[in-house]
Amino acid sequence: MPTTVPLGTEDDIKLLKSAAVHAGIIALGFFRTDLKTWTKNMSSPVSEADIAVDNFLTSALRAARPDYGWLSEETIDSPERMGRERCFIVDPIDGTRGFINGEDSWTISLAVVEHGRPIAGVVYAPVRDEMYVAGKGLGSECNGRPLDATPRAGRERLIPAPAAVHHELANAGIDYEKGQLYPSLAYRLVQVAAGRLAACVARRGAQDWDIAGADLILTEAGVVFEDVCLGTPRYNETETRHAAMAATADDSLLTPLRDALRIVYGCPQHEIQTSG
């Protein structure tokens, strides 16, 4: 049964794409320069580029959609967002550590969420000139080419993951190779949608802004993307952090990934779902 496309989705996609391109130009002006940087929350890096991009996105997106809520990594949160039917969820620069170090796979991750689920998503990697886009019921694409994550015979199964997760997958006898652990979680995730990675995982504690933009790109490309404790992730709620996450289009990997992530990161008993 076809998925109904929410009203205004295509206009929201155009808005997100335009904002991402302009944000990328701003970020590139700071890239590989003598950046001002500091640390927040004891260990998370921030740069002046993050703030400049966030300021631009706040102005551009909120002016265009004043009735939408707002949740950004670099903006003080307000519960007011939860009273809005739709909400922007924004990571001005995902992979800030890589950005600071001059690596080229950092991204700008943007989403529009309606009733807890994304209806439009963009993950843009300016240096690599890769624009990943999805709309609910409209499919997903990269630079205008449709994405299809269907596993293909003979394709190497690459999975980037922390060492402890690799250990558990090895114990389960899974045949695969270790994939590149890009600093941007959003970029890692959309590589599954593009078919370049067999799976991707995220440790416990990923925030809405880390994953909302990629979520729809994955699901519209046929990838299962789930919180291994709660199933389908929900956004724009009181708690913006998530349990460990798994993404794959390969059904044979779902159970081993769930098991490995639950062993490594834990899962409150009442949260564990038995589906799948």
Rank of each mutant, 00 (worst) to 15 (best):
W106N: 06
L28V: 12
L218G: 04
A221E: 04
A249T: 02
L16S: 04
L158S: 07
V113D: 08
P79V: 06
A221G: 03
R62G: 04
R241Y: 13
S109H: 01
C267R: 11
I211T: 10
A125M: 11
E271D: 14
S72Q: 01
R65D: 09
A249Q: 02
A206Y: 08
I211K: 02
L253I: 11
G102S: 04
L261I: 05
P2H: 05
L257W: 04
K178S: 14
R117C: 10
L138W: 09
E177R: 15
A64T: 06
G69D: 10
Y187C: 05
E10T: 07
T96Y: 09
A20K: 02
A246V: 12
D250K: 09
P146Q: 10
G102M: 06
H242T: 04
A246E: 10
L169H: 00
T248K: 04
T219P: 11
R262C: 11
S44D: 14
P66A: 07
V133I: 12
N55F: 09
G205Y: 07
S252M: 09
E10L: 11
V46E: 08
A111S: 12
L15E: 00
V122Y: 10
S275A: 15
A134H: 07
D91K: 03
N101C: 02
I89T: 00
H167T: 11
D67M: 13
A111F: 06
